[in-house]
Nucleic acid binder design. Sequence first.
DNA 1: CAGAATCCCAGACGATACTG
DNA 2: CAGTATCGTCTGGGATTCTG
Lengths: 133, 133
Amino acid sequence: MGSAHSEAACRAREMLDRVGDKWSLPVISELGTETRRFTELRRAIDGISHRMLTVTLRELERDGIITRTVHAVMPPRVEYTLTPMGHALLDAVGSLVTWAEAHLDEIDAARTGYDARAEQASALTRPPGRENR
Amino acid sequence: MGSAHSEAACRAREMLDRVGDKWSLPVISELGTETRRFTELRRAIDGISHRMLTVTLRELERDGIITRTVHAVMPPRVEYTLTPMGHALLDAVGSLVTWAEAHLDEIDAARTGYDARAEQASALTRPPGRENR
DNA sequence: CAGAATCCCAGACGATACTG
DNA sequence: CAGTATCGTCTGGGATTCTG
């Protein structure tokens, strides 16, 4: 029952909530190539904090998108791998990337145009006087 | 060629930041069918507040994903339409939806399993005593 | 009807310090 | 090396009120 839209949009939103946080995608993308250790990921992903890498990995593991393997050695060695489901997700995200690349210029242009128009509009409203250069 | 990952992941993240907020996708999805007025969208999208619809529409318009048309009548009549770029985006998101639908059960299972294991693990650590039922 | 402006809070995220 | 715990900040977004 209800609107046909919610079906699709709703499912998609669940996923964007999952993958749309700040670091999930970089992590997934990095693991797309090959299995990695904690510190390797840390170094490969620019700007991620120690804590956020941990948190992100936990979430992804919980959802079955990555696998965590602990090797009982000293010092500890933990490896992370993308599951088949994770690879499929990476593929799905691919079409977003494609879209983004295809329309990046168009988006920039749209923003510039919008901002220019907004600036003009507010200039009309604004009390006339010397511009604040 | 440094890290192959950043190229793709970075672009994708820009888009997830754009579309990954709480309401962009429902709005886009709703406009995918046909042109809509403000209040129509408000009613169609369950749970969205007046304010957030306004904000979301502004952002999408700024990025050239939707078009805003004002009809100078009383009462005001404003219509929103998906641009071609917007339609393309909706298509791209489609593969995420497909992925989500295909793996929903798998994700639920993974979570349940993970949580169960976590519960067990903490039980071992926890000081033995009577369970808190 | 459509939208702008204000206030406020929960939760996401970063920095830092400690542990096995 | 890998992970946990604690704390402070900052922002997304909800409720509400005012306008053309």
